[in-house]
Deep mutational scan, measured.
Amino acid sequence: QVALSRTQVCGILREELFQGDAFHQSDTHIFIIMGASGDLAKKKIYPTIWWLFRDGLLPENTFIVGYARSRLTVADIRKQSEPFFKATPEEKLKLEDFFARNSYVAGQYDDAASYQRLNSHMNALHLGSQANRLFYLALPPTVYEAVTKNIHESCMSQIGWNRIIVEKPFGRDLQSSDRLSNHISSLFREDQIYRIDHYLGKEMVQNLMVLRFANRIFGPIWNRDNIACVILTFKEPFGTEGRGGYFDEFGIIRDVMQNHLLQMLCLVAMEKPASTNSDDVRDEKVKVLKCISEVQANNVVLGQYVGNPDGEGEATKGYLDDPTVPRGSTTATFAAVVLYVENERWDGVPFILRCGKALNERKAEVRLQFHDVAGDIFHQQCKRNELVIRVQPNEAVYTKMMTKKPGMFFNPEESELDLTYGNRYKNVKLPDAYERLILDVFCGSQMHFVRSDELREAWRIFTPLLHQIELEKPKPIPYIYGSRGPTEADELMKRVGFQYEGTYKWVNPHKL
Results as ranks from 00 to 15, higher is better:
257 M>F: 09
319 Y>Q: 07
396 A>K: 01
430 L>R: 13
258 Q>V: 07
297 A>W: 14
292 I>C: 14
296 Q>L: 14
337 V>Q: 14
363 K>S: 05
415 S>L: 01
423 N>I: 11
253 I>L: 11
418 D>C: 06
323 P>S: 12
477 I>Y: 14
355 C>G: 09
253 I>A: 06
361 E>V: 06
489 A>N: 06
395 E>Q: 09
370 F>L: 10
350 P>E: 02
499 Q>D: 11
284 E>Q: 10
456 R>T: 07
376 D>I: 06
330 T>Q: 13
374 A>Y: 11
442 F>C: 11
415 S>K: 00
334 F>R: 04
358 A>Q: 03
419 L>F: 07
268 V>I: 12
410 F>C: 15
404 K>N: 02
428 V>W: 07
494 K>I: 12
482 G>W: 05
435 E>Y: 04
271 E>N: 07
283 D>I: 00
431 P>L: 06
487 T>E: 15
437 L>D: 04
306 V>P: 00
414 E>F: 11
504 Y>C: 05
472 E>K: 12
277 N>Y: 13
393 P>E: 07
390 R>T: 07
271 E>C: 07
411 N>V: 10
390 R>P: 02
327 R>K: 14
505 K>D: 15
489 A>P: 02
330 T>Y: 10
488 E>W: 05
398 Y>L: 01
400 K>Y: 05
501 E>D: 15
300 V>N: 08
310 D>L: 13
347 D>K: 15
477 I>N: 12
390 R>V: 08
429 K>W: 04
329 S>V: 03
308 N>D: 15
446 Q>A: 07
412 P>I: 10
298 N>W: 07
465 L>Q: 07
376 D>W: 07
507 V>E: 14
465 L>T: 09
415 S>M: 08
281 V>I: 12
352 I>H: 03
274 A>Y: 11
270 M>F: 07
267 L>G: 06
265 L>Y: 04
490 D>S: 07
331 T>V: 07
448 H>M: 07
486 P>S: 00
384 R>N: 07
364 A>C: 13
337 V>S: 14
332 A>F: 02
487 T>C: 12
301 V>K: 10
498 F>R: 07
372 D>P: 12
435 E>V: 08
304 Q>S: 07
314 E>D: 14
503 T>Y: 10
481 Y>Q: 10
277 N>A: 11
295 V>D: 08
503 T>D: 14
289 L>M: 10
313 G>K: 10
472 E>N: 11
358 A>V: 00
496 V>C: 10
372 D>Q: 10
415 S>D: 04
382 C>G: 12
442 F>R: 05
376 D>F: 07
470 E>T: 14
385 N>L: 03
276 T>M: 06
431 P>V: 10
373 V>F: 05
262 L>S: 08
455 L>F: 01
419 L>N: 06
493 M>R: 07
441 V>C: 14
356 G>K: 02
381 Q>I: 10
467 H>C: 09
428 V>P: 11
349 V>W: 02
452 S>K: 11
418 D>P: 00
426 K>V: 10
378 F>H: 05
386 E>H: 02
416 E>D: 14
424 R>V: 05
494 K>M: 15
374 A>W: 07
358 A>L: 04
343 N>M: 06
271 E>M: 05
460 R>S: 09
322 D>W: 04
408 M>P: 06
385 N>A: 02
351 F>W: 06
429 K>L: 12
305 Y>N: 01
423 N>V: 12
345 R>D: 08
422 G>L: 09
419 L>V: 08
447 M>S: 03
503 T>V: 11
279 D>E: 10
471 L>K: 15
456 R>F: 07
347 D>P: 07
343 N>A: 07
394 N>S: 09
266 C>P: 02
504 Y>P: 05
253 I>F: 06
458 A>S: 10
328 G>A: 11
505 K>G: 12
460 R>H: 07
410 F>N: 15
361 E>W: 00
267 L>H: 06
282 R>H: 08
416 E>H: 06
323 P>C: 12
333 T>W: 03
401 M>W: 10
322 D>N: 05
506 W>S: 05
506 W>P: 05
303 G>T: 03
459 W>R: 04
438 I>D: 01
442 F>G: 02
258 Q>N: 03
426 K>W: 09
470 E>R: 08
482 G>M: 05
499 Q>V: 11
475 K>Y: 11
255 D>H: 03
345 R>T: 14
501 E>G: 13
372 D>M: 05
459 W>L: 04
479 Y>H: 00
403 T>C: 13
351 F>G: 04
291 C>D: 10
484 R>L: 00
460 R>Y: 06
297 A>C: 14
298 N>F: 09
440 D>G: 06
377 I>P: 12
273 P>R: 03
459 W>D: 01
304 Q>K: 04
384 R>F: 01
459 W>T: 03
432 D>L: 07
357 K>D: 03
259 N>C: 03
335 A>D: 01
348 G>E: 05
280 D>C: 11
393 P>Y: 03
331 T>L: 00
482 G>E: 05
258 Q>M: 00
299 N>Y: 09
364 A>I: 10
346 W>V: 02
468 Q>A: 11
454 E>D: 05
